[in-house]
Design a binder for these strands. Structure first.
Lengths: 341, 341
DNA sequence: CTGTTAGCGCTTTCAG
DNA sequence: CTGAAAGCGCTAACAG
């Protein structure tokens, strides 16, 4: 049983060399002979010194190998969302390959100030619920990469949401259709509701509004108008919110024959409720999703949706951060034609 | 634009007080007058000093407010598993409430040595795939709480797996039944297979073997014997592995009329395949699960299973770590009778 | 209530 | 290739 934790200095004394030598043995192999290095490492192992203290290294070097992943919402919510968790997968595998650690950071936290001093950088997935974080990230001295939204001058990973929404809607819509839209975070409300004339939020920046633009452009081309009382706002991509909206839309009269949904989760919930009510899909009701999750493919009828690679986004975001890339990049998407249209 | 990052010392000089005063203003409100404190804080805000550098605090205080959650497997895998992600939810919400940060750590990493110096403690969820981590955690100077497995002398959170398995099996089994078991990590194999006479792993410690004991005790009471060729090993609770096992068991002859599954995910996959094959559940095939995930309740027929609160485990584990509790605790479980038995 | 000071454990010039 | 020494930025005694 060792009395107290060994320090580099102790070890240097015991081995009769200078502290620099020990430090170099661990951190800069080129600074000393291979033989000496190996001997030192062996000695250290024997006496139970496992290398320089990381906390001290963080202070001294100014790097920690820790990357903070800032989520849009609370960790609780994001971790069980299939799209977000696939993104996290992409990030975590890339970070792990590069010897970085992953710190999960909630988007509803007050501030990033309590980690900014020791993390090596931030990946920010979606606009954080607390907009203060955006302000802080914008002026952070540490590298920042955003995903699915932008901060001026910071690198970002996106898809072309307007175009993707346009494409899936174009595929779904025919002249004369009666269209409803299930949107995400379009207005500032914690519950499911139609947007009517509520003030829209983040119109210029949010992906939800880009998608809405795409839907409406497609509709316009088919001479379809979609009034605001046909547009639902859901605060999150969550089955419970979706269920409410689904009930409302399916019991509304006249009932729409197309519902364009901004996520697969909410599209699937609508699909299930419709089937339970005996509504024929796609004959009486066409549904489109967004994201391309596995469950959408397995559903019967399978969902027509926009596939984006969430894992790919995670990988690209991590690489961008690690390589200090500083450009905004747009990833491809793909239409997946299913049976719901 | 500030030239360079302000330090506490700079600030002390600028405000004409000592460094200790600044430090106390941020960390120990009781050490100076309220008025002075507020004034200092206001001044700091004005000149753009947001508080003591965290990296330096970590070194100096020896605490970081970072808790490492060591997962059994790779982060990628765990994050999309509903049971694990519910656990993570419980942990993350509790940590967040207590101002702690969550570092996700993969159970297939080489070592915890690269974080042990700066994290405040470890929560270890399931036996890490790399057993070296267990050894390291066992001698870690930092607090450790284990969940769903034990390390001698360290606090832990568990349920009584043997009893839970016994109870659900007892409910399912009738004399004369032909029983198969879908187990998890029973032997050392990366693929789905029957265990036959392969050497079992971690017989004394793994929850899988505790559950197996419970199943077999229930079977014995009904005069049923379950031979090793009726016991499948799945390397993970994953639908793809389950699908293979399900195919094997449903095409085996004579086909079992009861399958006891060690997780809901694999039970549900079996259920779906059986229904696709036109096998009547529960008339021709009874199925039990384990965990009590939401999807098991929604399935038709709904799954008979053991409910355990994964979120609850996460909360308890976090509390145990934060309060330095040092006892092993056993959480309750509940039988949920569904329609598959 | 305030100021001085000795480190926390390490890395990295810079001379030798 | 090695050793001495100056901090990284802060906190907690301790003395005033």
């Amino acid at each position: 049983m060792k009395k107290t934790k060994l320090t580099l200095k102790d070890v240097a004394e015991q081995l009769g060399v200078s502290t620099a030598t020990i430090s170099n043995a661990f951190n800069r192999p080129d600074q000393l002979s291979k033989a000496k290095r190996e001997e030192i490492l062996a000695q250290c192992k024997k006496i139970g010194y496992s290398g320089p203290n990381k906390a001290a290294q963080i202070l001294r070097k100014g790097t920690s190998n820790i990357v903070a992943l800032v989520l849009a919402d609370s960790i609780s919510y994001m971790v069980s969302d299939p799209v977000a968790s696939t993104f996290i997968k992409g990030v975590s595998s890339t970070l792990q390959e590069n010897g970085k650690h992953l710190l999960l950071y909630a988007g509803d936290s007050d501030s990033i100030l309590d980690v900014v001093d020791f993390v090596d950088g931030f990946i920010c997935y979606g606009q954080p619920r607390n907009s203060n974080l955006v302000t802080e990230l914008a002026v952070s001295p540490k590298p920042v990469v955003t995903v699915d939204f932008d901060i001026e001058d910071k690198p970002s990973i996106n898809i072309d949401n307007e175009e993707a929404a346009y494409r899936v809607a174009s595929h779904a819509l025919n002249e004369g259709d009666n269209v409803a839209i299930f949107g995400l975070r379009l207005i500032d409300s914690p519950s499911t509701c139609r947007i009517y004339d509520s003030p829209l939020i983040d119109v210029d920046h949010s992906i939800a509004h880009r998608r809405l633009d795409g839907y409406l452009r497609a509709a316009e081309e088919k001479n379809i108008t979609v009034s605001n009382e046909r547009i639902w706002h859901l605060p999150e991509s969550d089955r419970h919110f979706a269920r409410q909206a689904a009930k409302e839309v399916l019991t509304s009269s006249p009932r729409p024959n197309v519902v364009l949904c901004m996520s697969d989760i909410i599209a699937l919930e609508l699909l299930h409720l419709a089937l339970d009510m005996g509504i024929k899909v796609p004959e009486e009701l066409k549904i489109t999703g967004f994201d391309g999750i596995e469950e959408a493919e397995r559903a019967r009828p399978s969902l027509t949706t926009v596939c984006q690679s969430s894992a790919g986004k995670g990988i690209e975001a991590s690489k961008a951060l690690l390589n200090m890339v500083s450009t905004k990049s747009t990833l491809p998407f793909e239409l997946r034609i299913g049976e719901t249209v």
